[in-house]
Design a binder for these strands. Structure first.
Lengths: 174, 174
DNA sequence: CCTGGAAATGTTATATTATAACATTCCGCC
DNA sequence: GGCGGAATGTTATAATATAACATTTCCAGG
């Protein structure tokens, strides 16, 4: 059913950010392949459009806005309009394949699709990349806090804006 | 300089949400008074407009959108326009008097102005109220995670959407 | 097959949120 | 009083998101 998996790429010194020279096509291929599998398992349709939008979002590790996606789609799909994009990302977010970054109004591929997780998104304001950290300590702490408050949490957004290690040490942000 | 402080109101059974019948005028008065003090201490100007916008935001514990604030302002300040509101909230957020809730594009009064804190906003999707929990465990956990990632965090947004205790037990959401 | 109906997409229009740019007023300070 | 920067007024427009209805796709059941 799904092709043989490429070995998982390690993050750049454990930062959640992949090294600059990493084989990004592998990220994309792995993401698309996992998406196919998950959708098949759930009997939901990863249509051509949805697959393409997922691929565009995975085009880099920088969050992509809806209108950037739209612009990219237009070359290949003349009738594309805002609802085209918003409906596709709605599906992808609902399936946990993509995260919406609230503080940017933008979308980024989910690094842990299919696993239930509370993740923290680290957004570098220099290079624009976003890394996803699914640390169990975070999930634990948030569970404890919301439980103490008697709050029944449904959806979490944990976002931090700052500088990734690479950009702190003065590396060229690109 | 600042008037005698009213005793702090306790939250409803420790949930972060105040009891329905609490004396809300006290919340507002306390918030405005703390704001006056903080701005004076920092030599920044809490002008009439800014004070009024802060008061409107504190009008309830429900986050208020910029255009809701605008609508409220218009009755008393005919020339009010979007920049009027956005500039005032920009100031209030910069001074830590108000939080912007990213997932709602809305603003809510900060419960801990002047104290450095990482806070989690609990947003009830039934009653619409937002509670702010400044639990040191959260700050610790996030510090540890970002430190492990070598990330230099600058700004945090931690938001949870769900049901507050009151609304879980079937209380009238209003 | 074929077709009925739901899901997906196309299409047009508009709502909502936010900012740019420049003019005017306010206010502390000399 | 008046200089200069901060705050606000004013007009226009950018950026993000959804409503509403038309059309197409696709597959489950006949």
């Amino acid at each position: 059913m799904s092709p043989t998996r490429a070995p998982k790429q390690t993050t750049h010194r454990g930062t959640g950010f992949l090294a600059r020279g990493h084989d990004h096509r592998r990220c994309v291929d792995a993401a698309l392949s996992r998406a196919e599998d998950l959708c098949a398992a759930r009997s939901v349709r990863l249509t051509g459009l949805r697959r393409r939008v997922l691929e565009l979002i995975w085009g880099s590790h920088k969050p992509l806005g809806a209108y950037q996606i739209l612009e990219a789609l237009r070359g290949e799909r003349p009738g594309a309009a805002p609802p085209t994009v918003y409906r596709a990302v709605e599906f992808l977010v609902a399936q946990g394949l993509v995260h919406r970054i609230e503080s940017l109004n933008a979308f980024v591929g989910c690094a842990h699709p299919g696993e239930s997780h509370v993740s923290q998104l680290l957004i570098c304001r220099a290079c624009g990349e976003a890394a996803e950290i699914a640390d169990p300590r975070l999930a634990d702490t948030m569970d404890r806090i919301t439980a103490d408050a008697g709050f029944l949490a449904h959806r979490h957004a944990v976002e931090a804006v700052g500088l990734c290690r690479r950009c702190q040490i003065g590396a060229d942000p690109e």
